[in-house]
């Protein structure tokens, strides 16, 4: 298949991808708005029986170690926080993407979800340390969604890893993103953006998906959050939570210094917090999925 045809195939697949569940869509709308209240989130969860059960199972899972079980959805949502509720809803309705085995990156099944979750936690941690105001929960959501384009393009990249890595090492291409474009005429950020448009995600989330490897190119009003996701993505890869052959094959954009003071010690502290939080959430989701 010609490069141009692959590109068009992928864009068509992004347009035809199943929509998010009504609850997930509504939750993303609410949490992307500047002003919103927890009660609005509670109301969405209450109208979705499946989501209600999942939220209650997760808050009462062993990973959270509650002394007394929580049975009211209001308390569960306020205990878990809006980001976890959004994460649970996305994990359920976009599982076909998150759980896809990325053969084109030679990675294990489950690695896309684990990377996205770890990047989400790291994006939030970074956002909380910014000199400017960044909504940390929105940074978490953006982190969860940032790499979904890989699920769309992975099959077209089968068998290309070794060659692409050699090209990067010989400086024939600058990074993995450019390599993807050379091979199939589109990279995972553009494919992800097409999906985000199809899902009618808020502009800031679309920008985070489109520019997470090139945050300086994001519109100024969204730039701080996009930088948080850029750093969150890199921190997850450093922590050994990548998506395969492309791990650590993207440059760090030095422009982050405009919004964050991050020394080596801060970074170490962030990595430690991220690992702890990740282990807790990952265990709670896995525990409750089997039941």
């Amino acid at each position: 298949m010609a490069t141009q045809d692959k590109r068009e195939d992928i864009l068509r697949a992004a347009e035809k991808a199943p929509l998010l569940s009504p609850s997930a869509q509504r939750l993303l709308q609410i949490t992307s708005a500047r002003e919103h209240e927890l009660m609005e989130i509670v109301a969405v969860v209450k109208c979705d029986a499946h989501l209600t059960v999942r939220v209650l199972k997760i808050v009462n899972s062993a990973a959270f170690g509650l002394l007394y079980p929580i049975s009211s959805i209001d308390r569960a949502v306020s205990y878990l926080g809006e980001r976890m509720v959004v994460g649970i809803a996305l994990n359920d309705c976009a599982a076909h993407l998150f759980d896809k085995q990325l053969d084109g990156y030679e990675s294990e099944r489950g690695s896309l979800w684990r990377h996205d979750l770890q990047a989400a936690i790291a994006s939030r941690e970074v956002a909380q340390r910014a000199r400017v105001e960044i909504n940390p929960d929105l940074a978490f959501t953006a982190g969860l969604l940032h790499d979904l384009g890989k699920a769309l393009i992975s099959d077209y990249l089968r068998g290309t890893c070794a060659g692409l890595l050699a090209e990067i090492e010989q400086n024939q291409v600058a990074d993995y993103l450019e390599g993807e474009r050379h091979l199939i005429g589109i990279d995972h950020t553009e494919a992800g953006s097409a999906l985000a448009r199809n899902w009618k995600l808020a502009e800031v989330l679309q920008m985070a998906i489109a520019h997470h490897h090139n945050p300086g190119a994001a519109p100024p009003e969204h730039r701080p959050l996009v930088y948080a996701v850029h750093l969150g993505d890199i921190i997850a890869m450093m922590g050994g939570c990548g998506t395969g052959a492309d791990t650590l094959r993207y440059p760090l954009d030095q422009g982050y210094g405009a919004f964050f003071d991050l020394g080596g010690e801060d970074l170490a502290a962030i990595m430690l917090d991220v690992q702890e939080e990740f282990a807790k959430i990952d265990t709670s989701l896995a525990e409750t999925k089997e039941n």
Binding site: I234, M237, M238, L248, Y250, P251, L252, Q254, G264
Partner: peptide
């Protein structure tokens, strides 16, 4: 001890 593609060493936890 891998590192990210970064000319500065702030993010080089691997080296440390």
């Amino acid at each position: 001890g891998a590192k990210v593609m970064d000319p500065n060493d702030t993010f080089n936890i691997g080296k440390r």
